[in-house]
Each structure stands twice: as C-alpha cells, then as structure tokens.
Simulated scan of single mutants.
Amino acid sequence: MINLKRLNGKEFSLNALYIETVESFPDTTITLTNGHKYVALESREEVASQIAQFYKEIHILSNPHIRGEEHEE
C-alpha cells in the first residue's frame, strides 16, 4: 500500500499493485486496473517513487524475468 493525500488534505491508502496509470492533468490522477480514478495532492514523480519503494519492500522485482533480465548471474 502507498499513502497519499486527496486535494483536501485527507489521507488515503492505495494498493499499488492495481495502479494502471499515473498522469498529471495538472492534478495527479491515478487510474486503477478496474477503471476507478483517484486524484492525489502528490506529484506524479512522488507517486512513482512511492510505487517503486513499495515494489522493493514486497520484493516484486526480485524475479530477473520481471526485471527484464534474460539470465541471472
């Protein structure tokens, strides 16, 4: 889960595994794989950083095939 704030400052958590896109319109809009959209106070870059950190914490990128590596050494 990543922790974000709505435009009114209210905090919410979002499961980063279900995030399909993160865009700036200029507000940061997050679209989930089920089509639901959320608007966050954080920038697109901040959201991307939180997603990357979440992936590291759950070791989702520990598989070399997911990372795009052909052969693990």
Rank of each mutant, 00 (worst) to 15 (best):
M1F: 13
I2K: 07
I2G: 10
I2R: 07
L4W: 00
K5P: 05
L7V: 07
N8H: 03
N8K: 05
G9P: 07
G9M: 03
K10E: 14
F12H: 06
S13W: 05
S13G: 13
L14D: 02
N15S: 10
L17D: 13
Y18Q: 15
Y18E: 15
Y18A: 15
Y18H: 14
I19P: 01
I19Y: 00
E20Q: 13
E20A: 13
T21E: 11
T21W: 02
V22I: 12
V22R: 06
E23W: 05
F25C: 08
F25K: 13
P26C: 06
P26S: 14
D27C: 01
D27F: 00
T28R: 00
T29Q: 08
L32Q: 02
L32F: 00
L32A: 08
T33C: 13
T33Y: 14
Y38W: 11
Y38K: 08
E42A: 01
E42N: 03
S43C: 02
E45A: 08
E45V: 03
V47Y: 01
V47P: 06
A48V: 02
S49W: 05
Q50G: 09
Q50H: 11
I51P: 10
A52C: 07
Q53W: 14
Q53G: 11
Q53E: 15
F54L: 10
F54W: 13
Y55M: 12
Y55G: 12
Y55P: 08
K56L: 14
E57C: 06
I58C: 06
H59V: 06
H59A: 04
I60R: 12
I60Y: 15
I60C: 09
L61Q: 12
L61W: 12
S62G: 05
S62H: 09
N63F: 05
P64V: 00
P64M: 00
I66L: 03
I66T: 10
R67T: 15
G68S: 07
G68H: 10
E69V: 11
E70M: 07
E70D: 10
E70S: 09
H71L: 09
H71K: 12
E72Y: 02
E73M: 09
